[in-house]
Simulated scan of single mutants.
Amino acid sequence: MTEFVLVAGAWLGGWAWDDVLPDLRAAGHGVHPLTLSGLAERRGEPAGQQTHVQDIVDLVEERDLREVVLVGHSYSGIPVGQAAERIGDRLAHLVLVDANIPVDGQAFVGAGPWGGAVAEAIGANDGFWPPLTAADYAGQGLTDAQIARIVTGSTPHPGGTLTEPAALAGPLAALPATYLTCLLDSPEPPPPVATLLRDAGWHHTTLDTGHWPMFSQPTALADILLTATTH
């Protein structure tokens, strides 16, 4: 039996996976949606990026999970990627859902041209990255009801998790991984991912939806996660 550990991106908690859980459980697998420190029901807990890495490692070790498929979406690909190498032989596969990936010594705010704007927003909002507004979700394949659900459930994201650099013990290329590109968000994976797809033999798949497929296409996303267990 596979044990899926699901970690959503910025502003979101474990609740974001609610529509994906039934299909994974119906297939006979264990499912563990995780809310990272400082978000959703854990709002107010202090958090840096390494706190989030430890959140993931702690869940796997405290529940003594084996045959783990670690799933990271968006921002959470950075702590999930670090946690994947730290859980050792408990890891069966890493799945990155339209995600950032950790680069040793680099922070989330240094991962793209938008990093400066994120850092500025954190500085202007008491150390937190404020959630997106409903208008920001336009063109992402979401219904009005789905957008309202995301906006209502989102909480400010702890800035320290975005400015603290990643720390890798080894190359990500050594990990068995699948990368999902959501085509409405961007038709091409980011350059560091493209390099790993080419050089490390990571499996690559796409979904014709936006950046939040757990809301817009949960059944299709569950199918991709289930397929990842066979790679």
Results as ranks from 00 to 15, higher is better:
78 I>N: 07
19 D>F: 08
143 T>E: 09
137 Y>A: 09
225 L>W: 05
67 E>H: 12
206 T>D: 01
109 V>C: 14
172 L>P: 12
216 S>A: 15
195 T>G: 09
25 R>T: 14
216 S>W: 12
158 P>G: 02
168 L>F: 07
94 L>I: 03
156 P>W: 06
17 W>I: 06
28 G>Y: 01
73 H>D: 10
202 W>N: 10
147 I>P: 04
15 W>F: 06
45 E>W: 00
229 T>I: 11
86 R>Y: 05
213 P>K: 02
229 T>D: 04
165 P>M: 07
43 R>D: 12
221 L>C: 07
32 H>L: 04
37 S>W: 01
106 Q>P: 00
164 E>P: 11
207 L>Y: 11
68 V>T: 03
1 M>D: 15
135 A>T: 11
191 P>N: 08
167 A>C: 10
153 G>L: 06
18 D>Y: 13
132 L>E: 13
140 Q>N: 08
180 L>C: 09
116 G>M: 04
165 P>C: 07
5 V>Q: 04
47 A>F: 05
38 G>M: 02
44 G>K: 01
14 G>Q: 07
160 G>V: 01
39 L>C: 13
79 P>W: 10
119 A>L: 13
131 P>T: 03
5 V>W: 08
56 I>R: 00
198 R>Q: 14
5 V>A: 09
186 S>R: 15
16 A>P: 03
135 A>K: 10
18 D>F: 12
225 L>R: 09
125 N>E: 01
163 T>V: 15
79 P>K: 04
42 R>N: 09
151 V>T: 12
143 T>H: 10
12 L>E: 14
31 V>I: 07
173 A>F: 04
82 Q>R: 04
184 L>D: 15
22 P>D: 03
198 R>N: 12
219 T>W: 06
121 A>G: 05
229 T>R: 15
85 E>G: 15
32 H>N: 11
79 P>L: 11
117 A>Q: 14
176 P>H: 02
114 W>S: 13
6 L>A: 05
21 L>I: 15
108 F>V: 13
128 F>E: 12
222 A>Q: 10
179 Y>I: 07
110 G>C: 07
161 T>W: 02
148 A>N: 13
124 A>P: 07
110 G>Y: 00
26 A>R: 15
183 L>K: 13
214 M>C: 12
59 L>Q: 10
170 G>E: 15
226 L>R: 12
171 P>A: 15
144 D>W: 01
40 A>Y: 03
110 G>V: 08
13 G>F: 07
58 D>A: 14
46 P>V: 03
145 A>P: 00
226 L>F: 02
162 L>P: 11
227 T>P: 01
174 A>V: 10
197 L>H: 06
44 G>V: 01
210 G>V: 11
225 L>P: 06
61 E>I: 00
17 W>V: 05
64 D>N: 14
42 R>D: 06
79 P>A: 10
50 Q>M: 13
65 L>V: 08
68 V>P: 10
178 T>R: 08
91 L>F: 05
83 A>R: 02
103 V>H: 02
76 S>W: 09
37 S>D: 10
49 Q>I: 05
230 T>W: 00
49 Q>T: 06
140 Q>K: 09
180 L>H: 08
152 T>I: 00
139 G>S: 07
222 A>S: 14
165 P>H: 02
67 E>C: 03
71 V>F: 06
119 A>Q: 14
